[in-house]
Every structure is written in C-alpha cells, then in structure tokens.
Write a protein that binds this DNA or RNA. Structure first.
Lengths: 166, 166
DNA sequence: TGCTTATCCGAATGTGATTCGGTTTTCTCA
DNA sequence: TGAGAAAACCGAATCACATTCGGATAAGCA
C-alpha cells in the first residue's frame, strides 16, 4: 500500500495544479459516488495514498462543493411508488412556470427542470398508482398558462445514477 | 429522549405489522435520503427511539432492500459537466432499443429508461459542452433503427432527488 | 532565495457504529 | 388459551474507523 519513494515523488509532481481535479480525485469521487460507505482505509488502497491523505482530499472536495453531500438511495417500488413518469409541460407564461416550480414541495416530485424551448418544464414524478398520477396530471393541466402536458411513463429503468467524474 | 413507559408501550403496539413501513421507518428513511451522514444518535432523537433501536431498523431496511445503498452527491458542473439534457429516442426496432441500452456504460449517461410508446427510450445525459453533446447525439442518430431523437436541454434545475418515503 | 501554501502521512485520539445480551411485545399454532 | 418463536427495544460495552496532530516535503510566488 505504501508506494516506494520514487512513486511518491511522481504522484506529487503530477498533483500540484490547485483547484483542478486530478485523476486521484476523480477516482475517489467515482468510488464514493458509487458507494459512500467505503472506509478511508479502503479508498486509500484504491488510490495508493494513506488514509489521512485521502481524508484530506475528501475534505477539500467537500469544502469546494464538488461533493455536495451523501444520501441514502431508496427503492421507489418498496416505498409504494411504482409509477415513474416524466412530464414535459409546455407553458405559455412565466407565471405558469413559476406555479409549476411550487410542485417541488410534493413528495412524488423528484426532479424539476426548466428546459430549452418556449416555456417548457420537465418534471420527474414517482407516483403510487395511475390514479394519483392522473390526479397530479389533472392538477397540472388545470393550471392557467399550461398549454400542454406530455407524459412518458417509464416501463423499465436500466440506469439511474448521478454525475460521473470520469 | 427516553420516552415514559406509557409512550414506549404505545410505540410498540403501533409498530408491529411486519414487512410494512411504519411512520417511524418513513421518518428515518426521509432523514437518510436527505443526509446519510446523520449519526444514529441524531436519528434516535428525531424518532424517539434509542440509537441501537434505530440501528436495528436501518439494518432491516437495508436487508429488505428499501435502502439500496448510500452515495456521494457530486456537483455535475464542478466535474466539468455543465450541459444536462434529456433525450427522447424513438426507435423502430427492439434491436435498436437494445443498442441504446449499451450507452449505460458511458460516463455522461445518468439515466436510461424505456418509456411507454412505440419503442421509446429516455436518456438523461450530462455532457461537458455542446460539442460532446452533439457527438453523442450524432452517434445515437446514426444507430440503425433510431427513428427520431428529441433533445431537451435543461436551463435550470430546481430539484433533483430520489424517491421520497412520504 | 525565502516564505507561504498545499499535500502527504504515521501515530494518537475521538467519535460513533456495532454488538451483546437481556427484556418485552407480538404473532402463530395447537 | 398457553407455549414457543420471532421481532423489537435498549443500556452498556466493545470495536472500527473517522479525525486530528504535528512534522516533513514539495510546489508556487515574489
């Protein structure tokens, strides 16, 4: 685990551009993005640094906002939310868009993005059943300024993860 | 923090439907979905149980697959990925859909869902710039069996989180 | 060249995760 | 209805790992 002096020197020379993510940072980020319960001992083996050195780096990455936090990943189905749907809402006014943004408070709403186009908002919704999804849709459709709502119900999810450092 | 005997009894009686999530489970899940670095001491205060009791519950929730893991949340922009885009790919064949699923290996791909419709696949892509996004798009468009690709570039992201236990 | 900052890291300390073992409650079955 | 098994709770103890400390080295800048 402890590299020879020659390797240590090489690592240090490569490393020193401040504020830039090097390949070791990215490796650490990739490992934590996949499983944040890894110990520093484990990470240190993965990147050939000591545990406190890895700890220092993670501290920096958190300080700099590259790591925003850690969260538990929950199974939507086991929570009773079996219907994943993407809504593309076309609005005719800024005030409608703003009303849509208030849906961020709803437990079934997972993502809310304004997207390029004439007043479009994309909403990722995970509902318990078709009935509650329909209620949700109707609520959105009855907002003044909502021109159309296209919904795409997910049949299978093959991948769902956050940004990758690679 | 230690509830009186009467409260303890009440909690126990409410609790005992096995395999079903009760309100304490959901509270714990909500807290961990938001910040998985909370200590068991902190969680125990939130739900009025002891730390080992909370630990037992979390162990069960993990065993049962409700909690699938914990991950670090990374800032896409700080990773150099500033362009979030949703692609809606319309395919005319199952083999095209299957080719699309191989894009799950790409670092810029965050989500891959088949969605209801005639051979539709929704892909969430976080690219470094317009150039690499365009390359990605072209690659998809040149797949045999891909009928059309609609892309929605996110302008602002107001919410991005996983399934909620509420 | 000298000073400051950043990075690394072995050893030590601090914190919280985890286990242990006993008690209580709930559920199931005869 | 009672007995047994399983589930849930939890105080105390132990264990594991996070975190700090302080020194050394390297890099950057004037």
């Amino acid at each position: 685990m402890a590299p020879s002096d020659k390797e240590t020197d090489a690592i240090r020379q490569i490393r020193h551009h401040p504020a830039e993510l090097d390949s070791i940072d990215r490796k650490i980020l990739g490992a934590l993005a996949e499983d944040a319960s890894r110990s520093y001992a484990e990470l240190s083996k993965m990147v050939n640094l000591s545990a406190p050195a890895v700890h220092d780096r993670v501290k920096r990455l958190k300080r700099d906002g590259v790591i925003k936090g850690t969260v538990a990943i929950l199974d939507g189905c086991k929570l009773g939310r079996t219907l994943l749907t993407f809504l593309l809402v076309d609005t005719s006014s800024y005030s409608a868009t703003r009303k849509l943004l208030t849906f961020a408070e709803r437990p079934e709403v997972e993502e809310l993005h304004t997207v390029a186009g004439d007043g479009c908002v994309l909403i990722k919704v995970r509902a318990a059943n078709t009935e509650s999804l329909e209620d949700f849709l109707m609520e959105i459709q009855s907002l003044e300024g909502v021109r159309s709502v296209r919904s795409y119900i997910a049949l299978s999810t093959f991948l769902e993860r956050g940004p990758s450092p690679d």
